[in-house]
Amino acid sequence: MTEKTFMAGFGGQGIISLGQLWVYCAIKEGKQVTFFPFYGAEKRGGIARASVIVSDDEITSPLVTSADSVVVMNQDSVEIAEKLCKEGGVILVNSSLVKQDPARPDARIIHVPCNDIAIQLGDVRIANMVMMGALSKVTGAVKLDKLEAILKTFFPASKHNLIALNIAAVEGGKNAV
């Protein structure tokens, strides 16, 4: 099994963290992974994108150019999703911010109100984790069952109080799809 995911949003939405945690979990689940980010020089507001692959076999090209799944976190990323999603692929759309769906009738488009769910849970910054939960449920590529232990190493000790919130966000995303 190989799942090629393209993740797109704007800087500050946690696209890079989302991709890193996704492959971190996949490694702990015994998979091969590649994660290749590219982002603007801006601290916030520029483009943030990542090619992310998890596989049971050796990964060839680390560039995702024909994605099994695409994560679209903002309206500006719809165009790249239309371009990169493979025939009959899955596009997960952050419907809190994306009001116009990708024009890809062949693709399975799944709406996840990431920001709304995150705000309900108490912090809009965990919208990326909501999306990760949805991505896990829809693709089945990464189970995320080792996420809690990973977050303990991912976050510094001073942020460990946020782990429960992040887990809740992932669950919220799973339940939303």
Binding site: V23, I27, Q32, T34, F35, F36, L63
Partner: peptide
């Protein structure tokens, strides 16, 4: 730049 920036196991 890809080998340098990419994350893998």
């Amino acid at each position: 730049g890809l080998i340098g920036q990419m994350m893998e196991g």
